[in-house]
């Protein structure tokens, strides 16, 4: 399972590095969305808004949806499903591999977006650095959930429109937990209880993915 996960994660990351979709399409979109959030708040509020953590996660959510669709599109190319079936790859390993690759891609995106939050929305640099571990855990949970929901919608009619309907409600608790822990890192408050939600969700999605991803690939 670990070997399959390693192979799949490397394959997905290599495709991303070569195609540079993340670099030239997704990240500019994220930066633009963050800038628009600042414009929506207006010059008076953008500088000292308590909404900054929420806006960061909102933009991250858009980026995540794009990356999930991208991650599943890679699997839909002609012959990929047949190759996976012929090679007899462990489905749990494929799930973990895809989740790890998506997590790494989201971590890279989040670093840029956090930098953008500091610059555009004027969040404190130290507070943002304190929030980093919780952001990484939240994005890990979102990547695992996203891999599952991406597989659910792949190949059907209109995956790009169906995915948000299915995934957004599932992401909601993660986004709330992430936003609260980011706010706590910036303005003070209890962090651990929001961490627990993220960790429980991460564990739950990994367990469900390992058990059920094979059913979706049958």
């Amino acid at each position: 399972m670990i070997r399959t996960a390693w192979l799949v994660a490397r394959k997905d990351l290599r495709i991303e590095v070569r195609s540079r979709v993340l670099l030239w399409q997704v990240l500019p979109f994220g930066a633009l969305a963050l800038l628009l959030c600042g414009l929506a708040l207006g010059p008076a509020d953008a500088g000292h808004s308590r909404a900054a953590p929420g806006l960061f996660y909102l933009v991250t959510l858009f980026v995540t949806l794009l990356m999930i669709i991208r991650s599943q599109a890679v699997e839909q190319t002609a012959g990929t499903a047949e190759s996976v079936a012929t090679l007899g790859l462990d489905a749990a390993g494929v799930f973990i591999g895809k989740s790890v690759a998506l997590t790494i891609e989201l971590w890279v995106s989040s670093l840029l977006l956090l930098g953008g939050t500091v610059v555009v929305l004027h969040t404190s640099l130290i507070g943002t650095i304190h929030a980093l571990p919780s952001v990484l855990v939240t994005l890990g949970a979102m990547a695992c959930a996203g891999t599952l929901y991406g597989a659910l919608t792949a190949g059907g009619e209109g995956p790009a429109t169906l995915l948000p309907i299915l995934a957004l409600p599932a992401f909601a608790p993660l986004l709330v937990a992430g936003e609260r822990s980011f706010s706590a890192a910036l303005h003070g408050g209890a962090l651990w209880e929001w961490w627990v939600i993220d960790l429980v969700a991460l564990t739950g999605y990994v367990a469900i993915g390992v058990l059920l991803y094979g059913v979706l690939e049958e």
């Binding site: 919608t153 059907g156 309907i165 299915l166």
Partner: peptide, 26 residues
Amino acid sequence: VLALGYLALRRANDDPETRARRSAVY
């Protein structure tokens, strides 16, 4: 919204077996 998503997911798949499998996981 999750329940409505379930109904949307069923309408997105024409093959009965794929539809049933995906709906069950969801």
